[in-house]
């Protein structure tokens, strides 16, 4: 892959590996992964437990450093960034949705969404407008003033998605976002993310075991022992909506 190509895609990795050397035998959590994600993709990373899905997401999100290989986000080589620059880069370019929602418990839904924008030093008006827009898009117009403990699991995950989108990221990394949700709530959440993907062209990359997520993905990358064993781009017409 040439440098010019890095700049045109959202994520690009080359020979990406992560080896944990803590036990008696080194474990290759991610093994020589070459990946190319374009803008607007709705991609699922699938594979059995321990196949390296979460580790790969962490590497793509700059949360973890690879043992070898490199990650480019919009042409920017993450290995060239200092710790603080990397945090700022994540703040402005990557949205995270975690399995356990991970909202700030003492802040309301509205304040949780606002939090990343405050870190970005957005103006008050910009924050207010964006919060209202995101609450509307995530169907939480009436829940903005509630704290996470007052919201259902599905609502909390919607707030988490809204928070991930608040910083206007290049893409969203979601680690098992439906794992703690019942079938109906998971379906609603996926509908919402699919709509954001379709309407706003937001790029989503999920790690998941959930067949409902896999059914809706337009690209499914299967990991086995840290390596890509299959990379399937689906016919858009066959994707469940």
């Amino acid at each position: 892959m040439k440098d010019d190509n890095h700049k045109n895609c959202v994520i690009h990795t080359e020979e990406l590996s992560k080896i944990y050397d803590e036990g008696a035998v080194p474990v290759k959590a991610v093994n020589n992964v070459h990946l190319h994600i374009e803008k607007g993709e709705f991609t699922a990373l699938v594979g059995p437990s321990g196949s390296g899905k979460t580790t790969l997401l962490n590497l793509l999100g700059g949360l973890d450093t690879p043992t070898s290989g490199k990650v480019w986000i919009h042409g920017k080589d993450l290995s060239t960034l200092s710790k603080n620059k990397l945090i700022d880069f994540r703040l402005h370019n990557i949205g995270f949705v975690f399995q356990a929602y991970n909202l700030i418990p003492v802040l309301t839904a509205r304040e949780n969404i606002e939090f990343v924008m405050l870190l970005q030093k957005e103006s008050k008006k910009e924050r207010k407008d964006r919060i209202e827009q995101l609450l509307k898009e995530t169907g939480l117009e009436d829940q903005g003033d509630k704290k996470p403990s007052e919201l259902s699991g599905g609502q909390q995950q919607r707030v988490a998605v809204a928070r991930a989108l608040a910083s206007k990221p290049q893409f969203v990394l979601a680690d098992e976002p439906t794992a703690n949700l019942d079938s109906k709530t998971a379906g609603n959440l996926l509908d919402m993310m699919a709509k954001l993907n379709k309407d706003e062209g937001m790029t989503f990359i999920f790690s998941t075991h959930d067949q409902r997520v896999i059914d809706r993905a337009r690209r499914v990358i299967t990991l086995v022992d840290g390596a890509i064993s299959n990379d399937e781009v689906r016919d858009t017409n066959k994707v469940t909506t």
Partner: peptide
């Protein structure tokens, strides 16, 4: 620790 990890992950500098 978990909460701190999440905050740093979503873009809060350690200093803040």
């Amino acid at each position: 620790q978990y909460e701190f990890g999440v905050l740093v992950a979503i873009g809060m500098r350690r200093f803040k």
